[in-house]
């Protein structure tokens, strides 16, 4: 057994294609972008080596930390919302009527491109004609807020479409994980008299713990580098109130001709994500992966 499963050649063959692609197409650009971060470069003329200056500037840049805070909030929200997705998935995976149809319906938003989702929610949030404010006014709110224009609430407003957009993605993963649990285990628990809640919490949850941990990492990493909807819906505004790390990086590199500095910010984004991920992995670490 051990001999077969530790054959170096086989391992190399299995790892090689993926490692090659990721190494060449992700790691080389990554190293290059860290290198550009050492340059003063507008992306047009000549480069000038400035050492760690860009990184030092970034660390002292209040706008960068503002955007980091916004990204971090987004990560916290996204992680918390996983609990909701998981609960819905559990309901869908249990044998209730219509679960199959409901699951498909729940996944629809994730099929749409971000362009479409952003346009939809811009219309929902429109202060005068928008659906949300019309409903609020109909039920008696006199002055519903201008969701995307108010710097105090814009970030929270944007979180709603993000929550909505990703519902399908996580429900899909959880659903597949839950369906992967052998029926016999659940049947046995049921015969022992466990209630559905008990089965969910005591049996299903521990069995899909590995998947849950992975989704936590995905949610955090995805949020910290999140860009699409925010950029289309607010452009990071008003006055930076919804700027996140990735949109800040994009603006620096592509709009304001500070390509060197933008690359440094992009690399810091990666470092921050890495640190947060390592911490989260440590917190959720488990000595032995669950097996059955």
């Amino acid at each position: 057994m051990n001999k077969v499963m530790s054959n170096k050649w086989v391992i190399a063959i299995y790892i090689f294609p993926a490692l090659l692609l990721v190494g060449v197409l992700i790691f080389i650009p990554l190293i290059l972008s860290a290198y550009y971060g050492l340059m003063e470069w507008d992306g047009i003329g000549d480069m000038k080596f400035v050492g760690l200056e860009n990184y030092i500037t970034a660390i002292q840049d209040l706008k960068f930390w503002d955007s980091a805070l916004h990204s971090f909030l987004l990560a916290v929200f996204s992680t918390l919302s996983l609990a909701g997705y998981l609960a819905v998935s559990m309901i869908l995976a249990s044998k209730i009527k219509g679960a199959d149809l409901l699951r498909k319906i729940y996944l629809i938003p994730m099929l749409l491109s971000s362009v479409a989702i952003a346009q939809l929610w811009i219309k929902v949030f429109n202060p005068a004609n928008g659906m949300l404010n019309r409903i609020l006014m109909a039920i008696g709110f006199e002055n519903p807020p201008a969701w995307l224009a108010n710097p105090d609430i814009v970030l929270y407003a944007i979180f709603i479409p993000i929550l909505w957009q990703y519902a399908g993605f996580y429900i899909l993963i959880y659903y597949a994980a839950l369906k992967n649990i052998p029926e016999t285990i659940i049947e046995a628990a049921r015969i022992d008299g466990a209630s559905p809640l008990q089965i969910a919490y005591r049996i299903k949850l521990p069995l899909i713990k590995g998947v849950v941990k992975v989704t936590i990492v995905l949610a955090i990493v995805g949020s910290l580098k999140y860009f699409d909807l925010i950029y289309v819906m607010t452009g990071g505004g008003p006055n930076g109130a919804s700027e996140v790390m990735a949109s800040y990086m994009y603006k620096l590199a592509f709009s304001t001709n500070e390509f060197g500095y933008g690359s440094a910010v992009g690399f810091l984004l990666l470092i921050i994500t890495l640190i947060v991920t390592v911490i989260v992995r440590k917190i959720t670490a488990d000595k032995d992966e669950i097996q059955y």
Binding site: A18, L19, V22, I26, F27, I28, P29, L30, L32, S33, Y36, G43, V217, L218, V221, L224, K225, F227, M245, A246, M249, Y250, A253, F254, F259, S263, G266, F267, L269, L270, T273, L274, T277
Partner: peptide, 15 residues
């Protein structure tokens, strides 16, 4: 591989 998850796409596009 996990680090590969973290790269922001706009950092990668020019390299």
């Amino acid at each position: 591989f996990m680090v590969g998850l973290m790269i922001p796409i706009h950092s990668a596009i020019i390299p």
